[in-house]
Design a protein around this nucleic acid. Sequence first.
DNA 1: CTTCTACAATCAGGACGTGCATAGAAATTC
DNA 2: GAATTTCTATGCACGTCCTGATTGTAGAAG
Lengths: 226, 226
Amino acid sequence: MHVLIVEDEKSLHDEVRQFLLESQYLVDSAHTYGEASEKIFVNSYDFVLLDLGLPGGDGLDLLREARRNDQQEASFIILTARGALDDRIKGLDLGADDYLPKPFSLLELQSRMQAIMRRKFGLKRQEITFGSGFSMDVSGRVLRQGDQEVALTKKEFDLLHYLVLHKNRVLTRLQLGEHLWGNVLEDDSDSNYIDVHIKNIRKKLSAFAPTDFLETVRGIGYRVTE
Amino acid sequence: MHVLIVEDEKSLHDEVRQFLLESQYLVDSAHTYGEASEKIFVNSYDFVLLDLGLPGGDGLDLLREARRNDQQEASFIILTARGALDDRIKGLDLGADDYLPKPFSLLELQSRMQAIMRRKFGLKRQEITFGSGFSMDVSGRVLRQGDQEVALTKKEFDLLHYLVLHKNRVLTRLQLGEHLWGNVLEDDSDSNYIDVHIKNIRKKLSAFAPTDFLETVRGIGYRVTE
DNA sequence: CTTCTACAATCAGGACGTGCATAGAAATTC
DNA sequence: GAATTTCTATGCACGTCCTGATTGTAGAAG
């Protein structure tokens, strides 16, 4: 499950992010209107947690825009301090899936998300397939090739998961770093830890099947192709 | 056993709740129609004790809605002051499992619940099997391997039960803590009590059969595999 | 075609994090 | 208050992740 947190207040953002990460969600963050708009447009999320009091624009416009672009399948949950019933009604009118007044407990957030998921998917398990016979069971955190299990470490699994989730799109090291570590730390990263992880993933997978679906795009980053 | 009490009158609610807690049920409460609807949707209960005179909507609608959504396996017991035969018939028509006119004694409630459980599970007790010949009798709170009984403490049993219920899914310590202790996070509890329980479970089970079905997923949590 | 250069792949060593074991303190039960 | 259960504290062992240096390679320029 892929979640975008749109929230400018750092402490709240961090708290929610941490919680969702530990609950095994894949988390993205945006702190301004522009950033949020861009990410929603580029990526596909399962959930968008949307704060209304944003710098740079009204969060409700984001929702409106996203709904107009009907490719967007994300469920929107509106978070706001404004107790105004107005906003709530407007939000739900515009197609928000739920509304959570601040302050809220993380447990409540989780149960709302689960409720929406049930409504949306029922109980069917989520599996992603790619490459030559690989299938990734996200909730079980298992990667299989045929019926053999491929052992990956946490970072390896997360990295591959993120790449597979964005099949056919090139992801830069910066993007991968940001999503897997949350902190950008600018582009001073003379480090090559992502390359190392990629190498290790390739090595492990190659024992089972060819790994040419995991491509290097020179000068940019990596891509998983169909 | 997980029970939801839907009842707006506080004193009656509290009395029933207290009683069920002491009878080792896991109890949830809802005081309005909306709250009840949400909880039924989100969680899965074994019993719903349903008051009909609810603020916010007719309790019978709840029942209807829940039955339509056929994932819901809860047994409904209708509690109402209205002596009207009408409601009784309507309720049972809609799939209620029993009907209890107020005022009722707690002992009567208990015996009705037990009757339903007997009807539901019959003589074939509800059993979950896993690992190499282990079977868990949930209602009797007994774990067996073959025909030998494995003695577990309450916490151990609950923990294993929860893991087994979610076979093939990785559960984080956070998730386990939440469901078994109602733990709120806040402090990134560096406690290792879950690890200790897992270790004790493994030790006890390993005297009977291999315990490799109970896996550690490094950096994430634990998983029981098929 | 050859050379050059920027980038990627590889490798090994070490710091760190995570889980396990043990023991004992605290809490609960009888 | 004794016994069992549950939680806390600590040291250790090992797997994971990152670093830094080195080797390999693709693509452009000569």
